[in-house]
Design a protein around this nucleic acid. Structure first.
Ligand SMILES: [Mn+2]
Ligand SMILES: [Mn+2]
Length: 533
DNA sequence: GTGAAGC
DNA sequence: GCTTCACAACGCATG
DNA sequence: CATGCG
């Protein structure tokens, strides 16, 4: 017979085993003796002898010496999956070291689906898939797959794609549609397993065939895979230092051991994990009054911002430098949240890959009485910066009419944040309600400029006055927090008279550090004793 | 990035 | 002892 | 109630 991985999987699922044969290819220990230090060829000799009189569903795995290229092609012709090449004299290694190499007949790997085509003749669903792989944070077009799709696949995929359509290609370098076909672009969220013959010189797939959708694979982790036969043999004289070993280039900052300080977190400008940690150490004194003793949600990007980032809002076991606080939720259940108290908390978080700190609007000692109101101005895509700045001035003036002084910071993204310090006095309900009414005043006064509606469809050429940050349990980005975005930007407090000269994404980590050498634009923030009535 | 599980 | 894998959020405005 | 949104 012939080996068939698919058949084995079916067999495992349906335990009504029929003609299953066990083919043994190595012998690592015998009667309590470890054989891993013996040469492969000797281990196999021992194994072969043992299997002389074995039952017929137990086989010794024969090998062939030499003629690798020819044997590989024969194996593929015979419909095998591929061959394993092994150095006869090598001892056993539990890890990949090149002594054994896997040569697959079929090339297959996962690709991100970035779009699909509909041909004008086929009435039934998707005609082909447009595939990509990530290089850094760019999705590189890798070719199309039009075979391997059953009629049912085509229809189901079309349905799945409905919710992730987009106007612009997700590929910086997008393919052009052929005649008689229409391309629909998709958010790069789905991952397909694709079998293919080879990569062409143009780095496109030849004979790509769809094998199925892959769940539980993050699209951003999809990169071009190298087969064993493509990996350059590394000359042992030269630097053999790609992955991290147990190597200890750790540094200690503020008493906390920082692992992998040289790992690159931002590509442009180049910012390492060590830079992030040192940044938070430097801004700690300015930042802590706004971030300490407030319930946190954080964003971690331990592999850098081009890879998957995630939110964390519960402490989890074994967290260092943070304080756990039980908080009762709306339905009466209580859940653990966390906050930090000092610079050690800040640095401990940075060590764990935290980039963004988002805070509640209340302090933990007055959890039910919020004291920081944030109006987050979110402009529609591509809005002129001067209009955003006018929005900020309008907001400041509305608040001033209500006798409230406010403070300005960049968001690190597309808008600004206007922040109102308050005495902890009123309930979340009152606070939230007040924020909504302020946003509605803006909306009513200048209906063509502002909206208080969160829906993007209602935002056409307007600024969304995001008042929703001001609910219990909602958070907003802390002053001085790095943003997990291109450019290593910071949500930076600035003075009102800097509004016209500092863009929302105009302060990055380096600029922020430069700025804290000067005066604190929010110096009197906590001297305000204003409160809502 | 970490800890547990798996090899 | 080394590698691999799972895991790390959720409330609520809106229609 | 499902979904968009931050
Ligand atoms: Mn915003
Ligand atoms: Mn917002």
């Amino acid at each position: 017979g012939r080996t068939d991985f698919q058949a084995l999987q079916n067999c495992m699922k349906n335990p009504q085993v029929k003609n299953l044969t066990y083919i043994v290819f190595d012998l690592l220990a015998l009667d309590g003796t470890d054989l891993r230090g013996h040469r492969l060829i000797d281990r196999k000799e021992t194994l072969a002898a043992m299997l002389q009189d074995a039952p017929k569903n137990l086989h010794y795995s024969q090998h062939v010496r030499g003629n690798g290229r020819e044997n590989f092609h024969v194996a593929c012709e015979a419909g095998m999956e591929g061959i394993i090449g092994k150095k006869a004299d090598s001892i056993y290694s539990p890890t990949r070291n090149g002594d054994w190499i896997k040569l697959k007949c079929e090339k297959r790997q996962e690709f991100v689906i970035g779009g699909y085509t509909l041909s004008d003749k086929k009435t039934s669903g998707v005609s082909s898939l447009l595939l990509g792989i990530y290089e850094g944070e760019k999705l590189i077009y890798a070719g199309r797959a039009g075979t391997g799709l059953t009629e049912r696949d085509r229809k189901e995929l079309e349905k799945t794609f409905k919710s992730i359509k987009r106007m612009e290609p997700p590929f910086p370098l997008a393919p052009k549609p052929r005649s008689n076909e229409k391309i629909t672009w998709l958010e790069p969220e789905l991952v397909a397993e694709i079998k293919f013959a080879e990569w062409t010189e143009d780095n496109l797939l030849r004979q790509a065939s769809f094998k199925g959708l892959r769940q539980d694979k993050d699209p951003r982790d999809i990169k071009k895979e190298k087969a064993d036969d493509e990996i350059q043999p590394q000359s042992s004289a030269i630097e053999v230092e790609e992955p991290m070993k147990a190597n200890d280039n750790s540094v200690i900052i503020e008493g906390i051991t920082i692992s992998n300080p040289d790992k690159l977190i931002f590509a442009d400008p180049e910012v390492t994990k060590g830079d992030v940690v040192r940044y938070y150490a430097k801004v700690a004194e300015r930042m802590l009054p706004y971030v300490s003793h407030r319930v946190l949600s954080i964003v971690r990007c331990p592999k850098g911002i081009s890879q998957t980032c995630f939110y964390k809002k519960h402490p989890g076991p074994g967290s260092k430098g943070i304080v756990t606080i039980p908080v009762s939720s709306s339905d009466g259940e209580t859940e653990d949240y966390f906050y930090i108290e000092n610079i050690a908390g800040l640095i401990a978080e940075a060590q764990m890959g935290t980039l963004e700190f988002h805070t509640w609007g209340s302090r933990v000692d007055e959890l039910e009485k919020p004291d920081m109101m944030v109006f987050d101005l979110d402009p529609d895509e591509g809005m002129d910066l001067n209009r955003v700045r006018q929005g900020v001035r309008d907001m400041k003036n509305i608040l001033a009419e209500l006798s409230l002084s406010s403070y300005l910071k960049t968001s690190g993204g597309k808008g600004y944040h206007v922040v109102v310090p308050l005495q902890p006095a009123v309930s979340w309900d009152m606070f939230h309600d007040f924020a909504r009414r302020v946003a509605q005043v803006m909306e009513q006064k200048w209906p063509d400029l502002y909206t208080s509606n969160v829906r993007k469809a209602k935002r056409a050429d307007k600024i969304f006055i995001d008042w929703i940050r001001n609910g219990r349990g909602a958070t907003s980005i802390a002053p001085y927090s790095i943003r997990a975005r291109k450019g290593a930007t910071v949500s930076m407090p600035i003075a009102w008279d800097e509004l016209d000269t500092v863009a929302p994404d105009g302060v990055n980590m380096a600029e922020a550090i430069r700025r804290i050498g000067g005066n604190d634009p929010w110096k009197d923030f906590f001297s305000n004793k204003q409160q809502l009535k």
